[in-house]
Design a protein around this nucleic acid. Sequence first.
RNA 1: GGGGCCGUAGUCUAGUCUGGUAGGACUCAAGGUUCGGGACCUUGUAACCGGGGUUCAAAUCCUCGCGGCCUCACCA
Length: 510
Amino acid sequence: MAEEKDIVAGAPGLPSRGSAGTKGITASKEKDFSEWYTQVCTEQGAKLVDIRYNVQGFVVHRPWAFRILRKIYELYEKEVEADGHEPYLFPTVIPEENLLKEKEHAGFSPDVFWVTMAGDEKLEAPLALRPTGETQIYPIYALWIRSYNDLPLKGYQSRITVFRNEKTTRPFLRGREFMFFETHDVFRTHEDAMAQISRDLGMMKRVAWDRLALPFIFFQRPQFDKFKGADNTYAADTLMPDGKRNQMSSTHDLGQRFANAYGLKYDDEDGTEKQPHQTCFGPGIYRHMAALIGIHGDDTGLILPSAVCPLHAVIVPITFSKKPEDAKAVEEFCKKAEKEAAKEFAVKFDSSATTPGFKFNQWEMLGVPVRLEIGPREAKEGKVTIALRAPKEKRTVAFADLNKEIRDSLEKLDSELKARAEKYFANNTKDAKTLKELKDIIEKHRGFVRVPFCSTGMDGEKCADILKTETLGAVVCGTGFENPEKPKKGDKCVVCGKDARHIVYTAKTY
RNA sequence: GGGGCCGUAGUCUAGUCUGGUAGGACUCAAGGUUCGGGACCUUGUAACCGGGGUUCAAAUCCUCGCGGCCUCACCA
């Protein structure tokens, strides 16, 4: 945590006086999630983004949001590097021929932004602003890989990406430019590739669940809903408060399709030339942010887990102009507390010229876990009043115990967030045996609904389409990757009535 | 890509139907009084998204564009 506190020291650009909207958040998360989400993100709330930048789908990331996003990045960067991935930075543009080489599988070329001019001259061949990395990375990997000794080759990129001509845009959920993270791995065998996919799941567990308190299910997507360029797609899905699925990450078993298209091959130890197997893993940094905002937040604003909050604690002084001698003592004690807490935590002494009540609301809106209140009483008695964002509670502790108390408070907040999120997730995962039951649940509660289903192979697509039409939008998310639920004898597909081969999860989706 | 709503100061908004002086609140700035859960008073700064059209006259009507919200569809 030592480096974290340095990042925040000084903290230029942190919100100060009156920088949260004047009215605060007026929408109810429970009753009107869309409006609540918009308010939290913008001027009335935590000012995470400025959507007034005048290009659709491109937003300005303000300091509080950018600091959180950087921390999410850091968590994943540490994980993948510990897993043997090396960082790369590939160019911003991709030549048309690279992009189109695999278009029948990848199929995203209609969504990319094209550069056609340089100055006032037309380019000979258009350049695409990079959407995802496959088509730029694999041709280079093909040059780097000569023998089995070069494998596995594991790399990753953390960067902004630009693509998808989204008609509907929302901060952190749907944008034309967004925070991107992708690993691209090459292995000798399919077993090696599958082992990587399990490790990718492990990383999701350690970051999304352990650190961010975001529950998810790791699905194997149905064949009809996989990434077209992959043999199989696996994805971590969480549930937003409106009951819609938020896909937080995807991992693709790319098989040998891209190896084939881009000429990746290696000489194996037996001297024969072979085609490698590939995987890629993409935790959606933006989608994580949306999940943090939506799942943990309340009608007061954000609630951030300690792992990603730019500040662990804020110190609010309480002084009275009629007693200047007290004010001085309070300020000194605040500085002392700041110095002490800074040994272990990211802490800020908020000495700005507003009232304590304003600061309380301000920092709660921004989701800071711990607030230390220091007034004449505390200064006199050598104590600190410590208030927790969630569960909401306040108590006064001895200065000597300060850091231990903060540590305990952060732990308590993190486990509270996990308990809340887990409860919501469980309460909104239901079972249905018939299409009518499914429709009822989707209509009233949304969330995940488990149903018996005929097939997650291509032959199940027709039923999935009907299911989607009947439920006004629910999709088949797939089957659990770990311990998939098995249909009981006699379970029939909710759509066609044939014997169910799988229990699948369904949900409406972002 | 479809449908609906919308764009007035930094923010939220009145005014638009029925064309004629753009009004309020908050923020911000200054001064003063305050300060243990969004303090108050006084004064001040600050706006009709852009282009074209109709008209004596456009925030208001027409049109094109840009942007936003909701919703459906789409979706590595």
